[in-house]
């Protein structure tokens, strides 16, 4: 293993360890709201992810390092994106798909072309959409599936009443929704922590949120008092948008290396995710947008690099020609 590879692997281990730290307060909130059932699901999904990684590595005869925490992250993030009452088998299927069909066969932590957790969630959405979006009511029985999520409200064109209580509920995730991906205040605090630890991630997150905000302001799906602001609030706080901004758009395997490219990647992913949300038949389709962005961005980046190089060569050659002309 070369020094560069070792350094890359160390960076990824640190990244995924930091994301696990970020998921911890979200898990605590999920347990506080939904009880020990949520904790069981999180822990069991993490265990299944690790087992799948070990068994998959043995069967596929590839060297994998479980200590890079990526499998633990996949398990925890998947569980937190799902309802607290999701059947265990569905959660395990999503986690297994993410590890065995996306991560291991396509290059692993370092070079998988798609974000495994997003792919796993998209798979579960296509196979069991009624279960994946059947959220329990906050404070009600965990078996209930009648909770009205913000995503569902947006798809129906219904708005929240613009008062401080409702806005506070939205920001703290006190609406029916994913068990751990709803508390925006915690997610934003976590994103600050992630940006301090991995400074380049700030470009991804900023680009993504900027494009999502502009789309939400320009094309609101709801009509109410203070339409644009309420649309902005609801769009950003619904579903797994900010969760994706913090954890998927910053994924080291799919993210570009240069800060300017990261910013453009964030903007592109934001636009694609918002378009998917507007036109998809599912109430939450951010993960599909992430997958399309993962697939399309490398082709765009090659074009951008080529154009930049052409621009760099052109002024330098013209200045060199001018210098020659002046000298005589």
């Amino acid at each position: 293993m070369t020094k560069k590879t070792k350094k890359l692997r160390r960076n990824e281990s640190v990244f995924y360890a930091d994301t696990l730290v970020l998921l911890l307060p979200l898990a605590v909130l999920a347990v506080y709201r939904y009880g020990l059932g949520a904790l069981c699901r999180i822990l069991s999904c993490m265990l299944v992810a690790v087992l799948c990684e070990i068994i998959g590595s043995l069967l596929m005869k590839c060297q994998r390092d479980v200590s890079d925490c990526s499998a633990l992250f996949i398990g925890a993030a998947t569980a937190l994106m799902l309802p607290a009452n999701i059947p265990y088998l569905i959660a395990f299927s999503g986690v297994s798909f993410a590890v065995l069909a996306v991560k291991l066969p396509l290059g692993g932590t370092q070079s998988a072309p798609f974000v495994p957790t997003a792919a796993g969630f998209a798979f579960m959405t296509l196979c069991w959409s009624d279960k994946v979006f059947g959220y329990p009511i906050i404070g009600g029985a965990i078996d209930s599936v009648n909770g009205l999520s913000l995503s569902h409200m947006l798809s129906l064109g219904t708005s929240i009443r613009p008062n401080y209580a409702n806005i506070f509920d939205v920001l703290t995730g006190n609406y029916s929704g994913p068990s751990g991906a709803g508390c925006i205040i915690v997610l934003l605090a976590g994103s600050i922590y992630l940006c301090l630890r991995h400074r380049k991630s700030v470009f991804n997150i900023l680009g993504f949120l900027l494009s999502c905000s502009i789309m939400a302001l320009l094309f609101p799906r709801i009509s109410s008092n203070y339409t644009h602001l309420i649309s902005l609030l609801m769009e950003l706080c619904s579903g797994v948008l900010i969760f994706s901004a913090v954890f998927f758009v910053t994924d080291p395997a799919t993210s570009p290396s240069r800060p300017s490219h990261r910013f453009m990647y964030g903007i592109f992913t934001g636009i694609v995710c918002m378009v998917m949300r507007y036109f998809s038949s599912f109430e939450e389709s951010t993960c599909f947008g992430v997958l399309i962005a993962n697939a399309a961005w490398p082709a765009i980046q090659i074009r951008i690099t080529k154009i930049k190089k052409k621009k760099q060569i052109a002024p330098r050659t013209s200045s060199a020609v001018k210098g020659d002309a002046q000298n005589g």
Binding site: K309, Q312, I313, R316, T317, S319, A320, G323
Partner: peptide, 13 residues
């Protein structure tokens, strides 16, 4: 190739 060319331009300048 471009970068090596640019570096040679830089040295000439």
């Amino acid at each position: 190739a471009i970068m090596s060319g640019l570096s040679s331009f830089d040295s000439i300048l």
